[in-house]
Simulated scan of single mutants.
Amino acid sequence: MSAQPLEVDGLCKAFGDRRVLDRVSLHVEPGEVVSIVGPSGSGKSTLLALLTGALAADAGAVRYAGAAVGDDRPFAFMPQRDVLLPWRRMLDNTTIGLEVAGLPRREARERAGRLFAPFGLAGTEMLYPRQLSGGMRQRVSFLRTIVQGKPVLLLDEPFGSLDAITRDELQQWLLGMWAESRWSMLLITHDIREAIRMSDRVLVLASSPGRIVGDVAVTRAIPRGDGFVRDPRVPELEDRLRRMLAAGRAGS
């Protein structure tokens, strides 16, 4: 399924008297990677919950391909933790979303099984979660997200629980997978450098209540591999984003 433009227009959400999101608007072009950075409590995860339909917005609209998003949402969601079921083997963990959607188990297993080799997971199909490293478990979680066949991926800090070496490896791996498939991705992260490395654009979300205070373009000319940290544009972008975050906190 090819991606289409995603538009978020004026989303608002409050819990009781506390406003969490205030007129949040953004867009994601087909095949674009957009990161959202912001302090804890700025509403990043709440925004993803509104997009998936886990929460209902108080105001605003979400449009995909120019039409209002309904029950058949174009999003596949990946949480920070892999949340793999310990009693299910890897193959059966990756089919959960398909089975819930009504696909027969045999067909779901065939569809997911075809992805294990491209995802670097060949030979792990019959293993249990406890038998895999944290990095491999995240690959399984990502496969479970991709196999749903949705054109827009919502990733909530997918590398946040990993050690630095594994996180670097999986960032490189995901960038390679994206280069082949060109999904649209909306990535939540606390890590400014990760946002720059992974993204075409970085949005800055201020808190109390959450609102977009910056939209910074990142050139793909910056190397995403070994030369990333040595590129002089990286610290310049980091400084710019940190200043935006500081200004957003000061204005809250």
Rank of each mutant, 00 (worst) to 15 (best):
P118Q: 03
G225N: 13
R243N: 08
E169V: 09
M177R: 12
L143M: 13
A14Y: 00
D17Q: 13
R193P: 00
P151N: 07
D82Q: 07
V202G: 09
S199F: 09
I196S: 06
L11M: 06
G16C: 02
H27M: 09
A206M: 08
R197P: 09
F15M: 01
R88S: 07
R201V: 07
L48V: 11
L187H: 07
F15E: 00
E110P: 01
Y128V: 01
G149S: 07
A3I: 03
P129R: 03
R211C: 13
D17L: 02
G210I: 11
A54N: 02
G97D: 04
F119M: 15
V34H: 02
L121H: 02
Q4D: 12
D226F: 08
L51H: 06
P86R: 09
E157G: 12
L153A: 09
K44F: 11
A247Y: 00
G225S: 15
W173R: 06
A250L: 10
L187T: 07
R111T: 04
G214V: 05
S199K: 08
G248T: 06
A14I: 00
V152Q: 02
L175C: 07
L47A: 12
E32C: 10
R243F: 00
R197Q: 13
R242C: 05
S208Y: 06
M90Y: 03
G134S: 04
L203W: 06
D215I: 08
E238C: 10
D168V: 01
M136E: 08
V62L: 07
L203S: 07
R230H: 14
T124K: 01
M177I: 14
S181C: 01
G60A: 04
R18H: 12
G41H: 04
A117E: 15
E236N: 01
D215Q: 10
A117D: 13
G60E: 01
L245Y: 03
P86C: 11
S141L: 05
A54W: 01
N93W: 04
M78N: 08
F119T: 02
W87Y: 14
G10H: 05
N93V: 09
L6R: 05
D72E: 15
G120Y: 01
G41T: 06
R63Q: 14
C12P: 00
L48P: 05
F77G: 02
M136C: 07
E29K: 15
S35D: 03
V204S: 06
A3D: 15
S208A: 15
R18L: 13
Q172S: 14
V140S: 04
L155I: 10
W178L: 05
D200P: 08
R230L: 13
N93P: 12
I196Q: 04
R23F: 01
G43N: 10
Q131L: 03
R63N: 13
R73V: 02
A195S: 08
W173E: 09
S40N: 14
G134A: 05
S40D: 09
V69T: 08
